Simulated assay, not measured.
Amino acid sequence: MTGPLDGLLVADFSRVLAGPYATMLLADLGADVIKVEGPGGDDTRHWTPPVRDGVGTYFLGINRNKRSVVLDLKDADDLVLAHELSTRADVFIQNFKPGGLDRYGLGYDDVARRNPASVYCSISGFGADGGRSLPGYDILVQASSGLMSLTGSPDGPAYRSGISVFDVMTGLQSVIAILAALRHRDATGEGQHVETNLLSTAMSTMVNQTSAYVAGGVVPHRMGNEHLSLYPYEPMATADGDLIIAVGNDTQFRRLVTSLGAPDLADDERFDTVAHRNEYRGELRPILTDLLSVHSAQEWFDLLSADGIACGPINDVRGGVELAESLGLDPVAMAGDVPTVRNPIRFSATPPRYDRPPPGLDEHGAEIRSWLAKNPEEKHG
Rank of each mutant, 00 (worst) to 15 (best):
G131S: 10
T48P: 07
P352I: 08
W300I: 02
D240M: 07
E84M: 07
M169Q: 11
N65I: 02
P98R: 13
A202M: 12
S161E: 09
V16G: 03
V257M: 09
S133V: 06
V207G: 12
G308W: 06
T251D: 12
G41N: 09
A262C: 12
E190F: 00
I176V: 14
S211T: 14
D90E: 04
I345W: 10
L179G: 04
H46M: 07
E322H: 01
T205Y: 15
L198N: 11
D129P: 00
A31N: 11
C311F: 11
R45M: 11
G146D: 08
D53M: 05
K379N: 01
P154Y: 10
N249R: 13
R88S: 06
L228P: 04
Y233Q: 01
M334I: 03
P39E: 10
A76M: 01
G127E: 13
A11C: 11
V317F: 12
P20N: 02
S326C: 03
W47Q: 14
K74I: 00
L60E: 13
A306G: 15
L303P: 00
V70M: 12
T210V: 13
D32S: 09
M334N: 06
G189T: 10
D12A: 09
R277K: 15
L243Y: 08
P263M: 14
H364S: 15
G217W: 00
S200C: 11
G131T: 09
M236W: 04
A22D: 04
F347E: 14
L179R: 02
N225M: 07
P157G: 05
Y280L: 04
